[in-house]
Design a protein around this nucleic acid. Sequence first.
RNA 1: GUCCCCGUCGUCUAGAGGCCCAGGACGCUGGCCUUUCAAGCCGGUAACACGGGUUCGAAUCCCGUCGGGGACACCA
Length: 476
Amino acid sequence: MAKAPRLRFAPSPTGYLHIGGARTALFNWLYARRHQGTFILRMEDTDQARSTPESVQTILDGLRWLGIDWDEGPGVGGDFGPYNQMARLGIYKEYAERLIAEGKAYRCYCTREELDARRAEYEKQKRQYKYEGTCRDRQDAPDRPAVIRFRMPDGEGQASFTDRVLGKITKEWSDLDDWVMLRADGIPLYNYGCVLDDHLMEITLVGRGQEHVNSTFPQLMLYRALGWEPPEFAHFPLILGPDREKLSKRKHPEADVMLHARNGILPEALNNFVVRLGWSHGDDEVITRAQMLEWFDFAQVGSTSGVWNPEKLLWVNQQYFKSMAPEALAALLVPFLREKGFTVPDGDPRPEKLVKALRERARTLSEMAETARYFFSSGVTLDEKAAAKHLTADSKPLLQRVRTLAGELAAWTPEPLEHIVKQVSEESSVGMGKVAQPVRVAVTGGTASPGIGETLELIGRDETLRRLDAAIGRIP
RNA sequence: GUCCCCGUCGUCUAGAGGCCCAGGACGCUGGCCUUUCAAGCCGGUAACACGGGUUCGAAUCCCGUCGGGGACACCA
């Protein structure tokens, strides 16, 4: 039996939790959990200009909201910590010195300006700039701060690996170059910190986005130089925006996981939607967490990038609305109702009734709350077109009759209310719609709502009678 | 420009040589149901990028072309 796998998610805390990151986390988490492995969270907080503690918190909150927990990492500790790179600077320095001593890395004294100028010059000549040709063994090096560069081995060779989703990928050494491992201030760059940490944390499988396949090669060179066995790799397809470009924080607001939470998308739905972007299990669309855990594997992860499809997310969300326990959904709806400014006391029975009436009519919690507006307001604003069509001289006697019967009603519940409409339509020998629609317009202001009984119950006796009176009053 | 990856309906995808004149889902759309709107049910729309091979047979394998994306920082 193979050793239990250890997987990690290593975000850089430079903003909110990104959708692509969330899916990467989910895939890794699913795999780790499915194989009784360990899921590790590591903060790659080495970008001093952009990393913030708030962002660390946001990412942690986002993962928790999605229901992704970690066995080692911030907040929970573990035997391979610390789990944020800025606390591991000593480690990076130690191995860098070792590599220099072995001739596998060197101090590069070139300044940024010199490098920029040289790169520009080569670009003008349409030649490929090579650091190894200009930075190594510089003899004129003044005593100034230096970065530490990895030294590509001399001679011919290939770096290759077998990706768990892409298959075998190879690159010639000649297409690689010397690269910066450590900055002059001792802070590591991605390729360096990543390799050291993955090895030291005993990561067995690195699952990350396809934007990283090229960085796998320099990393492989480093594993080789250090004499370490590289982990397995799995590169996931990218998630694209409507413009077909990689979903990015700058260009695509929908890349923010918590934006969807604020819009009233359920975490289950977002997980479901996102797991289907790049992975599938036959024709299954609505997939529970338990099923994901049972079915997920990298073998079924595709290699083609996928476009973010908001319509389908909404549809998935509604599927969860319909299958969830009403009381649970109601609890989630309350904050959205209050957000709209509606008064909802604790223990209010209305949210649950609202959920039952509206979950097939709304695709987000936010939309559901908005749809519920006429249940909470005092009086209604009539849609003029609807009023002109349904609040007429013909319907006036029907409305009056409904008003009278409703006023006498003992139990204000859907069935008897529904019965009133039926009774009035029979008495007057007209279709149900001839009665229900005017009533609907009178109490909701428009022509669309849940069943008339449910609607009237939710609006309440006093408010219903008031609105009926008001509507009758405006008909000449 | 160099390198890497990818290419099935508008979108997400099934498909691992014959089960496919390509299946499911979202969307769009026709109908049914119906007191409205939804939901639900039934139906429709629409794809193997192109060209060469290999094979009795290719969406599936190979090559080329074209197309898309990604990476080329003292960001990650």
